[in-house]
């Protein structure tokens, strides 16, 4: 028993040491966001703000419609995550559990879309989106990322670990493939789907170059474009930039926190059936 206890203590020590390293830059951003620029430049490396101020948080909302940017990002990231999961579940199921001619080759061909540096695709993608009349719109922000190879690959890996007996039982019950996907695979892959939804949300949320290219109007800007306002050639508004970063990061943490509850539900399910 005492052996188990000391293992637990070591576990906590290791985790805490790691946590400090992981957290440090974030803590620094947080502390910077509560400081005036003059104070930051005077002593950028003090870990505790001497005269903490909320001014940066107030001023980012005054300088730019940050609320609107947050809303735009929220809409775009949620829609992207939803569509990505839908398209990925369908394709991943086909790649993991259905047999059809050229399955492996098609999978590699899908995967190949990840292998080309995205920077070079931007201009042709821009031309496509503009020709489809989706410039400066939510559709233009969402649809190019509605299906991605990485999410398909991710789910395929999880679907492949689900026991075959469960699928066979469903087939005997007379279920079609769509029903098997919905009733067997998706409930069992809940931890994976929850993880994927966080990732998909986050990729979209942190995207900078694509919205920069296709968004023209102020009303359609996303949060990352808003942050760029504080980095200018003349100098960086460190306090405001970090306040903006904190505001931009909180929603993802909330999404993660909500999704994390799904992880735990997922365990009990798999635990029971396995």
């Amino acid at each position: 028993m005492s052996n188990r206890r000391s293992i637990l203590v070591i576990k906590y020590i290791v985790l805490s040491a790691g946590a400090i390293i992981m957290l440090f830059p974030f803590y620094w951003a947080l502390s910077t966001s509560f400081r005036e620029l003059r104070d930051i430049l005077f002593d950028p490396y003090s870990l505790v703000p001497r005269n903490p101020t909320f001014a940066n948080y107030l001023s980012i909302f005054n300088k730019a419609p940050f609320g609107r940017y947050l809303l735009n990002s929220l809409i775009v990231a949620s829609a992207t995550a939803f569509l990505q999961i839908t398209t990925a579940s369908l394709s991943a199921f086909a790649f993991a559990r259905m047999k059809f001619r050229g399955r492996e080759i098609i999978f590699i061909v899908f995967l190949a879309t990840m292998m080309i540096p995205q920077q070079i695709l931007m201009i042709p993608q821009y031309i496509v989106v503009m020709r489809l009349g989706m410039g400066d719109s939510y559709a233009g922000l969402v649809l190019p990322y509605a299906a991605t190879a990485i999410s398909i690959f991710f789910l395929r890996q999880f679907f492949r670990t689900i026991p075959k007996d469960l699928e066979d039982a469903a087939i005997i019950d007379g279920c079609g493939p769509l029903r098997i996907l919905l009733n067997v695979f998706i409930p069992l892959a809940k931890p994976a789907i929850a993880t994927l939804s966080v990732f998909a949300f986050m990729w979209s949320w942190n995207n900078y170059f694509w919205p920069l290219l296709i968004i023209d109007s102020t009303e359609m800007r996303t949060i990352q474009l808003g942050l760029a306002l504080f980095r200018t050639e003349g100098g960086i508004q460190w306090g405001e930039f970090m306040a903006g970063t904190v505001v931009a990061t909180l929603p993802i943490l909330i999404v993660y926190f909500i999704a994390q509850k799904q992880f735990i539900k997922g365990i009990t399910l798999t635990g029971m059936k396995g």
């Binding site: 369908l90 098609i106 496509v128």
Partner: peptide
């Protein structure tokens, strides 16, 4: 099953590629 993803990839990735 792979059609929806395939179509989207065709328009937004394979064509640009």
């Amino acid at each position: 099953f792979i059609l929806p993803a395939g179509l989207l990839l065709a328009v937004f990735l394979y064509f640009p590629l």
